[in-house]
C-alpha cells in the first residue's frame, strides 16, 4: 500500500507541490492528470526518492521515502519521461545491468530478463543494440527495466508521449496487465483519453494542488451529478422546451440547435425510458435520444484553469 501524506516541495520562490495526500492499494492504476508544469513529475520524483520533499512523506509498505530510502528503492520501478539509455549496449546487457544493481541473484538474471522481455514483447530484440530500437520499443525496454526486480510500485512518467497509436495501445494493455498482476501503478499524463481507458483511480493536479482524487466514475459523478440527455427532434426544438421542462425529473431543458435539445435529468434509467415514452406520446417526432455522459476531459477542463506554476 502507498500512503502519500501531505507531500510538499518548495523551490526558491515557487511551491511546486502543495502538500498532496492520497492512498493507493495493490492493483490500483492511478492516472495522475495535469498540465505541463502542474507538479506531476515533481511528485513522482519525490516518491522515487530522487527529490527530497520539503515537507510530508510517502510510505510504501511501511517504508518511508525519507528514512528508508534504499528499502523504498527496492520496491519501486521508476520510468521517467526520458529514456536515459546507454549507447553501445545490447538490450539484454542493459537489463542485466539494472538487474545487477537491483541485486537480482546472478543465477536468476537470465530467466528474469527473458520473462520481462517476453512481457514487453521484446524477445526478438534481445541481442539488438538499444540505439537501434524504435521509439516504441525503447519505451517498452524502459518499462522492462522497471520490472526486472519485480517492484511493488511502478512510477511511469508520461509513458506514452511520442508513441504511435499502435505502440500506445500496446503500452496501455501492458500497464493494465501490470495492474492485474497486483502492482500499484502511477501513470502521469496530460493526454486524458489514454488514462481514462485503463486507470481505475485518477488524480487531477494543478499548480501543485490535488484538485480531485478517486475512481474515474466517482469524479465524473461528483462533477456532473445528473444525467444529461441529448434529444434530437424533427421540427423547431425551441417549441418543445416549455413542455419538456414541465415533465417529472427534468431539471432543465435547453435548445442547442435547430432540432437539438439538451435536457438535465435527475431520474434513473427506468425514469429515463418513461421520459422517452412521454415525449413520443406527446407527439414529438424523436429522431435520436441518448445520454450525453461526461468524460475525464470534461471534468479536467471544468476543474482546472490552465494556470501554471
Amino acid at each position: 500500500m502507498l500512503e502519500v501524506k501531505n507531500l510538499r516541495k518548495e523551490y526558491a520562490g515557487l511551491t511546486a507541490v502543495q502538500g498532496i495526500s492520497f492512498n493507493l492499494h495493490p492493483g490500483d492504476i492511478f492516472g495522475f492528470i495535469g498540465s505541463n508544469g502542474a507538479g506531476k513529475t515533481t511528485t513522482i520524483r519525490m516518491i522515487a526518492t530522487l527529490l527530497e520533499p520539503t515537507a510530508g512523506t510517502a510510505i510504501l509498505n511501511g517504508a518511508d521515502i525519507r528514512r528508508d530510502t534504499m528499502e523504498v528503492r527496492r520496491m519501486i520501478g521508476y520510468m521517467p519521461d526520458f529514456f536515459g539509455l546507454y549507447d553501445d549496449v545490447k538490450v539484454w546487457e542493459y537489463l542485466d545491468f539494472f538487474a545487477a544493481i537491483y541485486r537480482v541473484p546472478t543465477k536468476q538474471r537470465g530467466e528474469v530478463i527473458d520473462s520481462v522481455l517476453e512481457l514487453t514483447n521484446l524477445t526478438i530484440k534481445k541481442d539488438a543494440f538499444v540505439q537501434s530500437l524504435s521509439r516504441g520499443m525503447q519505451q517498452r525496454l524502459c518499462l522492462a527495466r522497471c520490472l526486472v526486480h519485480d517492484p511493488t510500485l511502478l512510477l511511469l512518467d508520461e509513458p506514452a508521449s511520442g508513441l504511435d497509436p499502435r505502440a500506445r495501445a500496446e503500452l496501455k494493455e501492458l500497464i493494465a496487465e501490470l495492474g492485474r498482476m497486483g502492482k500499484i501503478v502511477i501513470v502521469s499524463s496530460h493526454i486524458l483519453p489514454e488514462l481514462a481507458d485503463f486507470c481505475n483511480t485518477v488524480g487531477i493536479i494543478e499548480r501543485g494542488e490535488l484538485l480531485a482524487f478517486g475512481p474515474v466514475s466517482k469524479i465524473v459523478t461528483e462533477m456532473q451529478p445528473h444525467r444529461v440527455l441529448a434529444v434530437q427532434v424533427l421540427g423547431a426544438a425551441a417549441d418543445f422546451v416549455g413542455p419538456i421542462a414541465d415533465m417529472p425529473n427534468v431539471l432543465s431543458a435547453v435548445a442547442v440547435g435547430e432540432g437539438d435539445l439538451r435536457v438535465e435529468f435527475s431520474g434513473d434509467l427506468e425514469a429515463q425510458a418513461d421520459f422517452l415514452a412521454k415525449l413520443v406520446g406527446k407527439g414529438m417526432r424523436v429522431a435520436t435520444f441518448r445520454e450525453d455522459s461526461a468524460d475525464l476531459e470534461d471534468v479536467f477542463l471544468k476543474l482546472t484553469t490552465g494556470a501554471l506554476n
Binding site: 534504499m70 528503492r73 519501486i76 521508476y78 546507454y86 539494472f98 544493481i101 527495466r145 526486480h149
Partner: peptide, 17 residues
C-alpha cells in the same frame, strides 16, 4: 547529461557503489 544517472539512483545504489 544523458539522465541515466537518475535511473541508477532510483535503484538501491549508493554513491560509493
Amino acid at each position: 547529461q544523458r539522465q541515466s544517472i537518475d535511473l541508477v539512483f532510483s535503484a538501491p545504489v549508493t554513491p560509493k557503489y
